[in-house]
Amino acid sequence: MSCNSDQPDMNRREFLGKSVLAATATVVAPGVMLTVANASEEGASSAVRWGMLIDTNKCADGCTACVDACNKENGIDLMQRPAGQADEMWNAQRPQWVRKVKLRDKQTGEISNLPMMCQHCEHPPCVDVCPTGASFKRADGIVMVDRHTCIGCRYCMMACPYKARSFIHQDVAEQLTGTPRGKGCVESCNLCVGRIDAGNSTTACQDACNKDGHQAILFGDLKNPESAIAKALKAESSHQIRADLELNTGVRYTNI
């Protein structure tokens, strides 16, 4: 025992205090720098709400142009079927952001075709139930999944009234830059969010539908009264699927 001073070592205290200050500075500084050094604040704005109007009369039986375009746009076609998996299981497990559905009215026998995808609800049940907040709605009404915080619990898939969500059941070897995808997270139609953020005004499915001459899909800003979609919605009656749930969907259908 060489040190027997009862007095507190002031130098030591001072040193500790300074170290703490320095440590705080190094921890906080990057955050401060971030707030000053970042780019524009232009992003999704709540002044717009993206939506879609689908005219089922124009949707052709057997045509899958929108589905194929979606698969290509979002790199879904880059996924490989696990070796030896049967068609039925592959169809049940592969991601399907948009799917074609053919319906017949039980009473009248009327046939209708339509594409079914995430309906981009104003009050999305998937967002309500997500434990981590990974499922969220952007300011412009697009409902999507933040893969960084998705834990893969699939509660959103239980809650979605439209079966719009897909879980990634396998390793994914290749993705597109704009559409990250990996095993163990949930994903769904995001209205081609990368295109929209880049200033485009159409989605891949709409382009494909127009290219084939059907023009069944109309995409646009629901809040802008001058937009084509807002005018069309005002002019003719349209349906929300499962309107009884009062989710105020962003995707609407005519003639079903």
Binding site: K100, V101, K102, L103, R104, M116, K163, I256
Partner: peptide, 22 residues
Amino acid sequence: PMNLFPGKEVLSSSFYDGVVAN
């Protein structure tokens, strides 16, 4: 199956709409 289209039956869908899931 969830009843997405009341009063309609699903004739075809690649995603098993209107079909009891296996």
